[in-house]
Design a protein around this nucleic acid. Sequence first.
RNA 1: GGGGUUGUAGCUCAACUGGACAGAGCGACGGUUUCCUAAACCGUAGGUUCCGGGUUCGAUUCCCGGCAGCCCCA
Length: 579
Amino acid sequence: METNIQGCEAVLAKWLQDSFSAAFPGAADFSAVRALPATDPRFGDFQCNDAMGMAKILHRPPRAIAEAALAALPRPSFVEKAEIAGPGFINITVSPEWTASLVREAVSSPSLGIPACGAGKTVVMDYSSPNAAKQMHIGHIRSTVIGNALDRIFRALGYRVIADNHLGDWGTQFGILIKGYRECLDDAQRASPTVADLEKAYVDSSTRAKTDESWKNACRAELVKLQQGDPENRALWKKFIDISIAEFTRIYDLLGVKFDLWHGESYYNDRLPKVIEELRRAGLAEESEGALVVRFEEEKMPLAIVRKSDGGYNYTTTDIACAEVRTEEFAPERIVYVTDDRQQLHFKQFFAICAKLGLKTKLVHVPFGLMSYQGKAISTREGNLIKLDELLAEAERRALAVIRGENAQGEPSPAEKALARKIGFGAVKYADLSHDPATAIDFNWDKALALEGNSGPYLQYAHARVRSMLDRYSALPDALPDAAAGALPAVSSPAEKALALRILQFPAAVLRAAETGKPSALAEYLFGLSQLYSTFYQSSPVLKSEPAVRDARIALCAAFGRILAKGLDLLGIEAPERI
RNA sequence: GGGGUUGUAGCUCAACUGGACAGAGCGACGGUUUCCUAAACCGUAGGUUCCGGGUUCGAUUCCCGGCAGCCCCA
């Protein structure tokens, strides 16, 4: 089990563990004893709740246990106060000097205190994965944004990350599409089709196939030709994929998302017969009504079809092949799949099969609630499909309106537009990332594009304010050359101390996000951090204070600025210097 | 029918994996700009954490049984 304890909490945990061990040598396992951030500043800075749980094991009242532990060792210098409260809480107040020096130390390293627990390990991130020849819409935001945040977080933890966009680039839809491309588009569209054209060709062809039997058969014939390697269909297919990738890349560039690989489903085609062979040899697959299936009696799951009666393969088969190939190519410690939660059963089955086949790689599914719009699943059929392009354009437009104010005149400058993008896109991303992935989201323009309160722009604004102050500071004649590394950060007032302690929790928040697969843990941390900064900012003059106070406060501000900038970066949200 | 998931303030969501008085944002009401960026800050009102049991010092959190929504699989 990985430890989640870092920095100050690790030091406190060691002291507490030693104290318990000294008080009750050999009486119990104290390795889980630790200090948590205090739930209320009135209790102190940290609290230890473990004495209460030990009452049974040690056969003593919890307060007596806590007392004995605290009396067992001399109090270390970094602990200013440690007292017992309520049923047996140990409330700990740490020394200001220690807190300040830890803050300065944490922000002086490039990692900002994030542990390199992934060093030497590889993780494959499978996210976004749209279907080729279809336009991206708001339903694609979640996998893309959540996946990319986890991608960035794992990299920050020292992992080698292979971000792989597992495109939906194979299957029956390509027969329909090829037929549609040939018959439903005009010459100009065929000459240089856009993804929108391809989508139209598919929709028209698919509609016709529902009523026209010969059309349907023609589509099937095109599919068979493609599967058999017919050069013409193969070239068309390749063309569709290239066009799709170019279009997706354009949108990913806007979002700051970058993939290392684009190995779509088709990449694993050649491997599928081998997978079937492995399943057979392992005694996992059996014939049933012409199809080949895997049963899960022990797991009490429904069966999974790995080869249909017509000889076609299912996702399960492709995914097994994919996991095997990734394991062979990259030897990852784990593969993380970010998809909507409708696929939970599929992943459970597929993971179970991989385990039975002896695949060593840890497979992790990060499921998220499906996005809906006006209470309905997003689909062309429902007519509620908002394209990602539209969303991003609207986000930019709304941010621009706020930047330029009520009575703006003339065309916006390029700088204004660029800023509007950062803010608008930041709002879109944060609206998603700030929710627990498990939460289903019903898309709402105002919520997706919120610019105030618990929103992306709130964080960006806090960042711009602190950057601005740091710039002003560095222009002063008697400024220290490096604000963050200069004076010890201020921790004397309650607002300062609360901010400093929160800064120290950054690595824990990053780890929590990685371990739980929830970037929302980091987003929530950053929002709370920024709130503490805003409170501090409001009540504590920095540049106008006398030099000693000023330098201490600016050091705290610089530390905050670095943490916030890094945190936003891990979420994939840009942090403009000025707003 | 079987399985998954969610249920917390008027609305949208948190609650660091069992801790002290359940917290934020929006909305409502009131206040703060000759002062480092008001996209901000401060305050007030707002709760049977779906219901009923259980586990224990302690439950929004874990277990059992219901109810409701969404989803998946025959």
